[in-house]
């Protein structure tokens, strides 16, 4: 068994979601030869490669594809890159995190390799036996991959948490080698151009990886009122989330949406304010460790999944919480 982890990097480090993909590779087998693929160009790529090489004791190799055309995560180039690396490496598995990067690239690469990919894996029972949610998490499907190598998969990062012992970088780092791009199939390049990324600059933690998430629903009533939640988030060191209803009402941008059609989160603490608990929202947060719901309506379905419920007006509760919650250390 050998696995290629298609990784992302940012600011000279391998992203946590990619390290979750490495954890998933370990879940396939402890006897797994794990290679991490990084692409892009510039000084941060080299830094990220060094970081990746010492980020997990079971990574044996870091492959670096250094080319300007890999600067942006275009599916056309990245799928060809995965195809090229697979042709040379003959891996039994290819894994990436199930995020907007992985979901965009991996199925395209799978089509080039003529295999069926497996999306959104939450559990690995055997090297070819996986569990994945279907119907927005209302059912769990166990699937067996019976095709040729490679078995290609995207994994839910929240289901493969990082082990805390990874904080200590190990001394015997993995080897770093450059991918030979001389045989890159450039037939489909140049037909798509990356123009820009409009990002919300924020000091708060990323929604997908935060330990605490505070979410607002339609009950927040306005974009202005979301500022209250932001204050609470600052106090807790939390990320802010929203329901689809709050997004549709225009209170917040869609990248804050938690749910089947938005982000899947599983923080230590999830606090829902004015959230009714629609099925599609629950699908995005049901794996949180502790769920707190604050809602005026005692019959709101969110209370059926909450560990702690408080039937009260959120506009009274938030100021009181701001006063009474301990400062984040």
């Amino acid at each position: 068994i050998s696995t290629l982890v298609v990784a992302e990097h940012d600011g000279g480090s391998i992203k946590p979601s990619s390290l979750s993909a490495v954890e998933a590779a370990v879940a396939i087998s402890r006897e797994n030869s794990i290679s991490v693929l990084l692409g892009g160009s510039g000084p941060n790529l080299g830094k990220a490669a060094l970081h990746a090489a010492s980020s997990h004791p079971l990574i044996s190799q870091v492959l670096v594809a250094d080319a300007d055309i890999l600067m942006h995560p275009l599916a056309e180039t990245w799928a060809e890159l995965v195809h090229l690396v697979q042709q040379k490496g003959g891996y039994s598995h290819i894994i990436t995190a199930s995020n907007s990067f992985g979901k965009n690239i991996l199925p395209r690469a799978a089509a080039l390799l003529d295999v069926s990919p497996v999306t959104d894996i939450t559990e690995i029972s055997e090297p070819h036996l996986f569990v994945r949610p279907i119907y927005a998490g209302n059912a769990l499907c166990t699937v067996r991959y019976v095709g040729k190598d490679p078995c290609m998969m995207t994994i839910r990062s929240t289901s493969f948490p990082l082990h805390s012992d990874l904080a200590e970088p190990k001394s015997d780092a993995a080897t770093i080698s450059q991918v030979d791009l001389s045989t890159f199939n450039e037939e489909s390049f140049g037909k798509s151009r990356w123009l820009k990324l409009a990002s919300q600059d924020t000091e708060r933690p990323d929604l997908g990886n935060a330990h605490v998430v505070v979410t607002g629903g339609r009950g927040l009533k306005s974009a202005e009122n979301f500022k209250l939640l932001e204050k609470l988030a600052e106090k807790l060191g939390a990320a802010v989330g929203a329901t689809r209803a709050a997004v549709d009402a225009g209170f917040v941008p869609n990248d804050l949406q938690v749910g089947q059609t938005g982000k899947i989160v599983a923080p230590e603490l999830y606090m829902a304010f004015g959230v009714s608990g629609a099925i599609q929202h629950l699908a995005g947060m049901r794996d949180s460790k502790v769920i707190v719901a604050i809602n005026k309506d005692a019959d709101a379905p969110i209370f059926q999944v909450a560990d702690y419920g408080l039937v009260a007006d959120l506009f009274d509760v938030i100021p009181e919480l701001l006063e009474k919650l301990p400062e984040k250390k």
């Binding site: 019976v146 040729k148 059926q304």
Partner: peptide
């Protein structure tokens, strides 16, 4: 090349306490 082995209900979260 992908077979469904089984489909099951997700584990239920039990309702907690109202404070």
């Amino acid at each position: 090349d992908l077979e469904v082995v089984q489909v099951t209900e997700p584990p239920k979260r039990k309702a907690g306490v109202i404070v």
